[in-house]
Structures are given as C-alpha cells and as structure tokens.
C-alpha cells in the first residue's frame, strides 16, 4: 500500500508538469482552435534559457522569473511574426507551420547547447519537506509551484480586465472588436502566456527528466492526452486531466509493465478512454454544425 501511494504521489509531480503544458495548449486552442505542436519544444528552449542564466551565476529564483518573462516575449513575437500571416490559412497548413517551429526550436537548442544531456538543478532542498516520505522535495515543490501558477492564471482570467478581454476575444472575435478589443493582440498575449506557462513546466520537469533538446517529446504527448482527457475546451478539466495522466503513467509503469513500454500502455489506456468518451471526462460535447 505504501509503495502504491508512493507511485501515486510521485506521479503527481509529473502530472503537474503535464497539467501546466496542457493548460498552455488549451489557452491557444480556445482562441484559435489549433493545437500548438511546438509548445513542448518552446518549453524546452525556455528551460535552456533558465539553464544558461543559472550557468552565468544568476540565482535560481531570479533566473526563474527572468525566464518566464523572456518566454512570454518570445511567445508574443512568434505569434505576431510567424503565426499571424496564417490567420486565414487551412488548418493543416497551420499544423505544418507548428511542425516547422518544432524543428526550428529543437535544432536551435541543439546548435546552441549541444545534444548532450545536462543536469538541471532543483531549487528545493535535498531532504523531503515536513518528513513527507511519499514525495521528494522537488516533487512536492513542483506541485506547489504549479498550483500557485494555476491560482495566478485563474485570478488573471477571472478578475482582470485584460483577462476578461482575452476570454471575450476567444469566445467571439467579431463582438470583441465591436467593444474595442484588439483581438490580434489578445492572441499574441495568449501565445505569450502559453509560452510562460510552458517555461514553468519545462523548468519543473528538467530536474526529473534531465535537460536535452528532445526532453519534451513524450511530455507534450502526455500533456495533449491530459488536455483531451479532461476536455480541451475546459482549461480546468485539462489541468485535472494532466494530473490524472501523470499518476496513471507512473502506476502503469510500476505495476502493469516495466518502464520499457509504459508509454505505449498509458497511451492505449488514454485512447481507450477517449473512444468511450470522445469529448473527454469534463468536456462539453460540441454539437456538430449541420
């Protein structure tokens, strides 16, 4: 039983990472109905920025905040420069642009920082907190940081004028323009926000999975699975889905099969759930337009 709980709790840490990236995917999906396949690679690149800053002697938490700010700007610039010309392009064309971005970020990281695996420090102490024997301090720290980020995002969308305008722009761009909202900029800010959230996910994941340009492939997949499991039209469902996937992955890896093919097994389970419940566990069924 204790061993099982251990698996569940340490699954929560990776679950927090999936939840963050799932939220980043949903922020962009709700505004544009595109899944940004480059989100994981953008997060990976942000993590390298943090590594670089720390390597230059910047203290961890300053590097952490600086990385979030830089990532926000990168996200905004990408939307304005790369994505914006494709506003009216067919959906698959946009997917290909995302693939292009994915390849570019992966390649730039390999070029600047090499493909060798780096270790990434955790800001949390070595011994677990409060004698918690189920989670290491990095694992509990990851969950705490993620929950704090989620609370901030919630407050932003719920209580600020800009957050309200962003929700409005995603729901109904035409009406938003009619109340004076600059919808294009809302999209750019959404991209910035997603990139910033992804940066947090990357920095929290890196001490667990180590830092290398390909670290985010599997993480993106599980985040997308979490988002779809929870319902891609519902940010909080997506977050919950991310946590569920994290736990599921860990438990499946420990009890059902070895770590060798746990990816495949977890995926089969997720796809199975989606086949049974296509709109996700907490998603609204979107009525097909006739």
């Amino acid at each position: 039983m204790v061993a099982f709980l251990h698996q569940v709790f340490s699954g929560l840490a990776m679950g927090a990472v999936y939840a963050s990236l799932a939220l980043a995917l949903v922020v962009i999906y709700q505004a544009t109905h595109h899944v940004n396949f480059a989100q994981g690679e953008m997060a990976m690149f942000s993590t390298y920025i943090a590594w670089d800053l720390i390597d230059r002697g910047v203290p961890y938490w300053e590097a952490f905040l600086l990385t979030i700010a830089i990532s926000f700007l990168i996200g905004m610039v990408i939307e304005r420069v790369v994505i914006r010309p494709f506003e009216r392009a067919p959906a698959l064309t946009v997917v290909i642009v995302f693939i292009g971005l994915l390849v570019i970020f992966n390649s730039l990281a390999g070029w600047r920082y090499s493909y060798t695996i780096k270790s990434f420090e955790s800001p949390f102490p070595d011994e677990p907190w409060f004698g918690n024997s189920f989670m290491s301090s990095h694992e509990s720290g990851t969950v705490v940081v993620t929950l704090a980020m989620l609370a901030l995002v919630y407050i932003f969308f719920r209580f600020t004028k800009l957050g309200l305008a962003m929700r409005a722009a995603a729901l109904n761009p035409t009406s938003s323009r009619l109340v004076g909202i600059r919808v294009g900029w809302m999209l750019a800010i959404g991209w910035g926000l997603a990139a910033a959230i992804g940066a947090i996910a990357g920095m929290m994941a890196a001490p667990i999975v180590y830092l290398d340009p390909n670290m985010m492939g599997g993480i993106l997949l599980f985040s997308l699975a979490g988002a779809l499991l929870g319902g891609i039209d519902n940010p909080w469902g997506a977050v919950l889905g991310g946590f569920i996937v994290g736990v599921l992955e860990n438990v499946a890896g420990a009890y059902l099969v070895g770590t060798e093919i746990k990816l495949s097994v977890a995926l089969i389970i997720i796809v199975g759930v989606l086949v049974a419940k296509p709109s996700g566990l907490f998603g609204r069924r979107i009525a097909a337009r006739v």
């Binding site: 004028k161 309200l164 305008a165 929700r167 409005a168 729901l171 109904n172 035409t174 009406s175 938003s176 009619l178 109340v179 004076g180 909202i181």
Partner: peptide
C-alpha cells in the same frame, strides 16, 4: 445581438466599457 453567451451579464457590461 452579438452578446458573449458564455459570460455573465456583468462581464458583458464590463466589456462594453473596455475601451
């Protein structure tokens, strides 16, 4: 009408004054 159906009445009014 172009109301934001998923938002509350209050939020719709706040958006009216966005500019």
């Amino acid at each position: 009408r172009g109301t934001f159906a998923a938002l509350t009445v209050n939020e719709n009014l706040r958006l009216g004054a966005y500019a």
